[in-house]
Amino acid sequence: MNFIIHFGIIANALLLYILIKNALKQVQFKILFVIFSWILFTQISLFGFINQNEIIFYPVFLFQDTITISIGPFLYLYVRAIFFPDKHIIKDNYKHFIIPILYLLFSSIPKLIELIQRPETFGHIREGVESILAMSTIYTLIYCIVALKTLSKTKKLIMQYYTHISPNDVNWLQKFLYGTVIVFGIDISLTIYELVFPGISFSVGIISFFIVFLIVYLAYHGISQTKILLPEFLFTKEEISFEQDSSKNEINNPRNKVIYDLKEMNSLKQELEKLIQKEKWYLIPELSLKSVSEELQISDKKLSYLLNQYMNVSFYDYINYLRVEEVKQKILDPSYAQYTLLGIALDCGFNSKTSFNRTFQRFEGITPSNFKKNQAIA
């Protein structure tokens, strides 16, 4: 148990060091720093608890006792900060912390005072407060579920509006939130188990193990998550019905959604192909649906309909397929022989090695390096 907690503390401290050194300029990483600082103090508190060390345990007890009710709002704001960067996000969302503050004042602080005055209660800090722990855990679970719903809607919108962001870019965060739900689910289960079998207290060790696992996972994946910026107005747009569009060439189908005139769609398709393929707009790294619709002088809703309904392709796939084809042509072009694969990818509109490799393999079924080797052999 001591080994697990020691490992967790070291991993957490390393992650905080990386955040301080490289990433605290972005608001999402400031929130992440708070989250992992809280977890670090909680780990130190658990270490003091397991080793019956009051000098270590008491100073950080409040972090350990409030983490179950505080981590949920912080995780929710972290998700929002990734997609909607705002330096005032904590200030503007203070209401989410009212209940954790009340919990601190009327539960955690009195509990700490009781522990200091009655050291014999040190042995099992969960005893007698199972209902409060359950309520605080449920509070965090609600925030995790809301954050997961935000992610689910985000992944859908990404492919409709952007080409430089992949839905896979948020998979790690989705898994982390599911992991958090599992940890708190285990916590609730163990609390119930301890009620049925009093005197058995191994929950701290089990929970510590899963917390350490999540820390390592987020440390590996979370630091590089800096480029996803999804304007909040897109969430509102997604809920707007097509029937609100006032275009002259629209008629309603039985579902009360708009079907655009086929001639208009065919004409728009030709204009789109001229802009994207002939003028090579797909080479623009941060090309978005909005920028294309503005150039075509149509609404982004109409352009989305053209792609998804008329051409049966997402904006993301449409643009990145052309980028992959451009990469293939340049790999075969002797004038690009001195270029690295990454250099070619960046020249073709991709903005990262990870995104390029993933997209290329998705369309071609083979990695870019293997494709290049095969062409050299041929």
Rank of each mutant, 00 (worst) to 15 (best):
Y178V: 00
Q329D: 15
I5P: 01
D300H: 14
T68K: 15
I211C: 07
M135H: 11
E279T: 07
L214F: 03
Y162W: 06
Y282E: 09
V34G: 09
L195R: 15
Q329H: 14
I31A: 14
I109C: 07
V204M: 11
V27L: 12
I192H: 04
I206R: 05
N312I: 10
V216G: 01
L341M: 10
L287A: 09
P119D: 02
I125H: 04
N249D: 15
R126K: 02
L342P: 03
K269V: 10
L133I: 09
N266Q: 15
I98Y: 12
Y76P: 07
Y217N: 05
I331T: 07
L283P: 05
S241M: 11
G185H: 04
K227Q: 15
E54R: 08
Y220H: 03
K302G: 08
T42M: 06
R323M: 10
F233W: 11
N171P: 06
T354I: 13
A134F: 05
S246R: 15
Y103S: 13
N249I: 12
H88V: 05
S247T: 12
I50N: 04
K263F: 10
K227H: 14
I366V: 03
T367H: 10
I55G: 03
F49L: 14
P167V: 00
E232Y: 05
G349W: 04
D347M: 06
P85D: 11
K21S: 07
K153H: 04
L190I: 06
I9N: 02
I55V: 03
G128L: 06
K248E: 04
I50Q: 15
E130T: 07
E194P: 05
P231S: 12
N12A: 11
R362Y: 09
Y139E: 03
Y339I: 01
S352R: 08
S166Q: 04
F57C: 01
I113S: 09
E325N: 01
E54L: 15
S224R: 13
T150I: 09
R362W: 02
F315R: 07
I69C: 13
F84P: 07
V313Q: 14
A23H: 15
I113Y: 01
L303E: 05
Q28K: 03
S189R: 02
